[in-house]
Design a protein around this nucleic acid. Structure first.
Length: 498
RNA sequence: GUCCCCUUCGUCUAGAGGCCUAGGACUCCGGGUUUUCAUCCCGGCAACAGGGGUUCGACUCCCCUAGGGGACGCCA
C-alpha cells in the first residue's frame, strides 16, 4: 500500500509549533513507509486567511527542513492544493449530498441559531441544530434560493444510534449521534467548511493516514457519515495528543511562545526544535534523546506514540539546543550566527538605529545588546517609576500584550497608534505609559527608540518579551481575570472612540 | 452542563503480567575538573492518581471514582 499523509494548515496567523509537530509526524510516517507527504492549505475562512500567513507557513516548514512532495508551490497530480481554488469540486459533492437527501438547505438566521443555542444551554441540553429547515420541500427551497435568500447547506445526522470508529492509537471510540450537530457543509459565501473540504480532499488526494490533533476526535463521526454518504473508504486515523502549556492547558500564545518563527528568531536550530518535537509523545526504541530527523524516520513506529498530552518545556528545549550548538565546528558556528543575526540584512536594519548615538565603535554593543540578544530577567524593581505603581505597570503590560497579540500586521504606524490609543484609554501620559514597555523590551527604562526596537525584534520576540515581563510580577489567576475584564472595557472604549 | 480522550518522578519519557529494589533525560541540590563562569564528569532528591476486581503474580488486563484535557461555531 502506498502511504500518503498530509499537513493541512490554515493560513490564519503565525505558523504554530503545533503545526510543526503534526507536520513532523506526518512527514516521518510517510518517509518511513516510503510514501508521499503533501501540504494542503486550508484557506476556506476567507475573513481570516492571508497570503502573508501562507507564506510564513511555507517559510517555517522549509526552515525546519520538512519537505513535501505535493503542495500549492510544487504542484502535483491531485491539485490544486489550496482549498480556495477547489470550490467547484466541493460544490459538486455538496449538490450530490443534497440530491441524495444526505444534506439540506438551511435558511436560519444567525439570530435564530443563537437563540436556539442559548435555550438549549439554559435547558442543559447538548447544543445542536434543531432541524428547523429539514422539512422544507424542494420547491420551497428552490423558490427561496431563487429569491436570493441567504442560505447554507447542512449535513443530515441521525437522531439516534451511535458511531463507532477506530483510532489507530487508542482502539475503538464510540460517540452517540445525539452529540453530533447537523454540521454546516457549505457556508453562505459558498465556501465549504472544514468538515466537507477535509473529507473531499483527503479522498481525492489519496490520503491513506490522517495524523492530526486530538481536538478532532469528537468530529470524526461527521466525517464517517460523509465518507459513507459519498461511498468512499475511510483513511486510517491517528489522533496525536495536544501540546500543552506548563499549566497543562492546550498550548496557546497567551501562555507560551507558539510561533515557529519565535524559535528561529530566538536562536534555536531547526534540527533541535524538530528533535524536541520528536520526543513529545514519541521516543526512540533505544531511548536515545538526541536524534536527527533521518534517524527518526528510520526508527519511526506509530506504535511508539503515546497519547498523554506532553507539556512543551522551554528548559529542556534549551538544553537540547545547547547540545546541538556545542557539537558544531567553529566554522559551522560562525555560519549559523551569521545567518541568524550577523548578516548584511540584519545589520543594515540595526546600524541606522545606533549610528548617530555612538562616539566610538565600542559604544555599539552596549546599545544594541537587547536587540541581538536576550534582555535580562526582570524583577519588580526594574519597574520602579515616579508615578506608576505596581498595578499600573501590570495593567499596561497586560493590556498592551493582549492587544499586540491580536495585531495582524506588525507595522510601526499600527503599533504606534495602538499604543497611543491605549495610553489615552488608560488616561496616562504617553511617556509614562511607554516606560514599562521599554523595560519589558530592553530591560531598561531608557534604550533605543521603542517602536524601532519592536520592528527590529519582530512580532514574536516582542510579544514574548512583554508577556515575559509580566512574569516578573506574580499575577494571580484572580488578578488575571480582573485584568481581562478591564481589558474588555478598554477595548470597548477604543472601538467607540474610532 | 453533555459527550469524548487521557493519567509512571515537578517536566519529557522507558516499561506490552514475573527482567522493577520502577530505568534514562531535563530541572533542582551537592561534589569534582577548570584562573572565573559555562561546558564536562560524579552523586543525590523525586513517580506507577485512589479503590475494587482478574491472576500463583499487576506499573502492565477489566471496572468504578477522582483529577487533567478536548469538543460542543457559517474557525480550522
Amino acid at each position: 500500500m502506498n502511504v500518503r499523509t498530509r499537513i493541512a494548515p490554515s493560513p490564519t496567523g503565525d505558523p504554530h509549533v503545533g503545526t510543526a509537530y503534526m507536520a513532523l509526524f506526518n512527514w516521518a510516517f510517510a518517509r518511513h513507509y516510503g510514501g508521499q507527504f503533501l501540504l494542503r492549505i486550508e484557506d476556506t475562512d476567507t475573513a481570516r486567511s492571508t497570503p502573508e500567513s501562507e507564506a510564513s507557513i511555507f517559510a517555517a516548514l522549509q526552515w525546519l527542513g520538512l519537505d513535501w512532495d505535493e503542495g500549492p508551490d510544487v504542484g502535483g497530480a491531485a491539485g490544486p492544493y489550496r482549498q480556495s481554488e477547489r470550490r467547484e469540486i466541493y460544490a459538486q459533492y455538496a449538490q450530490q449530498l443534497v440530491d441524495r437527501e444526505q444534506a439540506f438547505y438551511c435558511f436560519c438566521t444567525k439570530e435564530r441559531l443563537d437563540r436556539v443555542r442559548s435555550e438549549q444551554q439554559a435547558a442543559k441540553q447538548t447544543t445542536r441544530y434543531d432541524g428547523c429547515c429539514l422539512g422544507l420541500t424542494a420547491d420551497a427551497v428552490a423558490q427561496r434560493v431563487a429569491a436570493g435568500e441567504e442560505h447554507v447547506i447542512r449535513m443530515c445526522v441521525p437522531d439516534v444510534g451511535e458511531c463507532t470508529f477506530e483510532d489507530e492509537l487508542r482502539g475503538p471510540v464510540t460517540i452517540p449521534f445525539s452529540q453530533i450537530d447537523m454540521q454546516v457543509l457549505v457556508k453562505s459565501d459558498g465556501m465549504p467548511t472544514y468538515h466537507l473540504a477535509v473529507v473531499v480532499d483527503d479522498h481525492l488526494m489519496g490520503i491513506t493516514h490522517i495524523l492530526r490533533g486530538e481536538e478532532w476526535l469528537n468530529s470524526v463521526p461527521k466525517h464517517v457519515l460523509l465518507y459513507q454518504y459519498l461511498d468512499w473508504p475511510m483513511p486510517k486515523l491517528l489522533h496525536l495528543p495536544l501540546l500543552r502549556n506548563p499549566d497543562s492547558s492546550k498550548l496557546s500564545k497567551r501562555k507560551n511562545p507558539t510561533s515557529i518563527l519565535y524559535y528561529r528568531d530566538e536562536g534555536f536550530l531547526p534540527e533541535a526544535l524538530l528533535n524536541y518535537l520528536g520526543m513529545m509523545g514519541w521516543s526512540m526504541p533505544d531511548e536515545s534523546e538526541i536524534f536527527t530527523k533521518a534517524q527518526m524516520v528510520k526508527a519511526f513506529d506509530e506504535k511508539r506514540i503515546s497519547v498523554g498530552g506532553p507539556i512543551f518545556d522551554q528548559a529542556k528545549l534549551a538544553w537540547l539546543n545547547g547540545q546541538y550548538l556545542r557539537q558544531l565546528s567553529a566554522s559551522e558556528f560562525i555560519a549559523q550566527t551569521q545567518s541568524w543575526m550577523f548578516n548584511q540584512d540584519r545589520l543594515s536594519q540595526l546600524i541606522p538605529l545606533v549610528q548617530e548615538r555612538v562616539e566610538k565603535f565600542s559604544d555599539l554593543a552596549p546599545l544594541v545588546d537587547y536587540l541581538v540578544g536576550a534582555r535580562k530577567t526582570l524583577t519588580p524593581d526594574n519597574f520602579l517609576h515616579k508615578t506608576l505603581d505596581r498595578d499600573a505597570n501590570v495593567k499596561i503590560l497586560h493590556h498592551t500584550s493582549a492587544l499586540l497579540d491580536d495585531l495582524r500586521h506588525w507595522e510601526r504606524e499600527a503599533i504606534f497608534e495602538l499604543c497611543q490609543d491605549l495610553a489615552q484609554a488608560l488616561d496616562l501620559k504617553f511617556r509614562d505609559y511607554l516606560f514599562p514597555l521599554f523595560v519589558a523590551i530592553s530591560g531598561r527604562g531608557v534604550s533605543l527608540p521603542l517602536f524601532d526596537s519592536l520592528i527590529f525584534l519582530g512580532p514574536d520576540l516582542s510579544r514574548a518579551r512583554i508577556r515575559g515581563a509580566l512574569d516578573a510580577f506574580s499575577v494571580s489567576g484572580k488578578e488575571r481575570k480582573r485584568l481581562d475584564k478591564s481589558l474588555v472595557k478598554v477595548t470597548a472604549l477604543l472601538s467607540s472612540g474610532q
